[in-house]
């Protein structure tokens, strides 16, 4: 099987990685770069635990080949906090007790951040729609919805408008 030397920017740092053709972005992040914040829940694009930003849009990293990311920019949950300061959506998830086991949380946070980046003032229906690809078995979701809604208000109040 062919291997490829790719160059990919991960959380702001340019990485040169040797990847086989069939390696997914998820596996590359976790096993080549040691970025284990991104989780593997189903390897089939259904659970959303592996959601990361690829060129500023959220994707299921289990359904992207690493080799496809040559030249791309990837951001994971590890990039959300800046200099020790949590992203408003991270803080809001803590404040609302919207985390329990924490395994879906990294993917939820990426989907939520992506939503707020494209729509700073989402309705509850829009939040539900944006998170429908992030399965959570612990919380019952409503705390997560509230956390995202409040993070939007915090974002609007501080006019920081997200992490980009």
């Amino acid at each position: 099987m062919a291997h490829h030397r790719i160059s990919v920017t991960v959380n702001g740092s340019v990485e040169s990685v040797d990847v086989p053709s069939n390696m997914t972005l998820l596996t590359m992040l976790r096993e080549k770069l040691g970025l284990t914040g991104t989780k593997n829940g189903c390897t089939a694009g259904e659970c959303g635990a592996c959601t990361v930003f690829l060129n500023d849009e959220p994707v299921n990293s289990c359904l992207v080949l690493a080799v496809e990311c040559d030249g791309a920019e990837v951001r994971t949950v590890e990039s959300l906090a800046r200099k020790g300061k949590l992203d408003p959506v991270q803080q809001s998830v803590i404040d609302h007790n919207a985390v329990q086991c924490g395994f879906c949380t990294p993917g939820v946070l990426i989907s939520a951040r992506a939503l707020l980046d494209r729509n700073p003032d989402p309705s509850e229906e829009e939040i539900r729609d944006a998170l429908v690809g992030n399965l959570c078995r612990c919380t019952g979701y409503v705390r997560i919805l509230d956390a995202v809604k409040d993070a939007a208000q915090v974002g609007a109040a501080s006019e920081t408008g997200g992490s980009r």
Binding site: G48, T51, E57, P58, V59, N60, S111, G133, N134
Partner: peptide, 9 residues
């Protein structure tokens, strides 16, 4: 179709 992050791809 599916979810937002799936629709990205």
């Amino acid at each position: 179709v599916a979810s937002y992050q799936l629709r990205t791809r």
